[in-house]
Design a protein around this nucleic acid. Sequence first.
DNA 1: GTCTATATCGAGATAGAC
DNA 2: GTCTATCTCGATATAGAC
Lengths: 219, 219
Amino acid sequence: MSLDETAQETPGPEAEAATKHMVFNAAERLFALNGFQNVSVRDITAEAGVNLASVNYHFGSKDALLFEIFRRRTAELNRERARMLHEANDRHGGKPPVREILTALIAPPLRWLDPAHEHRISLQFLIRARSEGTAAIREVLGTDVSHLRRFSDALLAACPALQPDEVYWRLHFVLGMIHQNRFMELDRLHVLSEGLTREDDIAGLQARMLDFAVKGFEV
Amino acid sequence: MSLDETAQETPGPEAEAATKHMVFNAAERLFALNGFQNVSVRDITAEAGVNLASVNYHFGSKDALLFEIFRRRTAELNRERARMLHEANDRHGGKPPVREILTALIAPPLRWLDPAHEHRISLQFLIRARSEGTAAIREVLGTDVSHLRRFSDALLAACPALQPDEVYWRLHFVLGMIHQNRFMELDRLHVLSEGLTREDDIAGLQARMLDFAVKGFEV
DNA sequence: GTCTATATCGAGATAGAC
DNA sequence: GTCTATCTCGATATAGAC
């Protein structure tokens, strides 16, 4: 009486949800690895082991599928970051130091990057969607900065000696460091360093990124 | 007796070269602004004001055209960087300090970013091609690290107190900062800072990036 | 060499049977 | 709800006229 088999043979609400999830996960994985335009609806449904029409039935269109993955993962990542920032606020009476703020910004995506983390591929998807995404995604990225503003405001408060534009620029630099964590760039680093860099040592990477970024905010 | 008109009406070797150049420039511009897959051969030839078949006649295929633009611009950028590194070597007896090395890495792409520079769009193209490019481009990027190695070697010599893997990671971070200079990211920064950041002040940006990066290499 | 017309292909979306 | 078969479109590439 395997639940899986039962679900597949007598499709009920669970089976519908299961199919939708399989499409979602297959699409995210393929988009992350090969890019949006290089992945066809046929690739996705084949990888998921479902019917060709599933994408349009469950999501409306390939574009809408991409957008829904982007929305969900962005919300998840931002939620983790916001929670860490909130906790840092609580610990420091509403005015956390730079290192704590940057930790809230950096730690969640790096946690996702861990080979043991279920969202390792989601981070690759998000970084890719950011540059290759559809017009709708670029729209959102370009105009909705409310999430980032929590961090820039915190940094402004933590760096009263700096000109505000300086703070924004340095935050911009840190974001560049975070976006550099695609498989492609990490592989290239591995080749360049001839294996010296241990890309799977996430704790070490986080410590290095934080040290680098925090130093950049000094003076 | 306009040379342009003559060239168009009696196509000679100059006209052929002119057509090829127009295709090259139109393609680079459209690829940089809209991405490779979103630009059709029809878009390119229409923008260039030439015949639809020109792309295949002069370059073989759309893929080959992309690769040729990538090759040419990469070579130009690397040449500028290598020259600056070479000059820094000359000024410091073969062992330049970190700031000079990072200047050689950062200054050329930032010069291209200047609105007054003829290669402003080429830099956008290069950053985009790096993430969205074809398999051939990713191949080159992933395996050919000879150009980067000149910089990592110089940094290793300039930072004897650091573990080599530390140096490679920090170089990786700086590359992330450089790749963050797409129009999209700069526009987003402009929105976030509510216009405080002056993205067209390239000298200021270079000073800020260098200060940030050099601090990151301290200790 | 250039251009028009077209061959060929693969994509996303969908109608209709079950 | 699911799946098969198909519609329709837009892409690259190319053959052949000039």
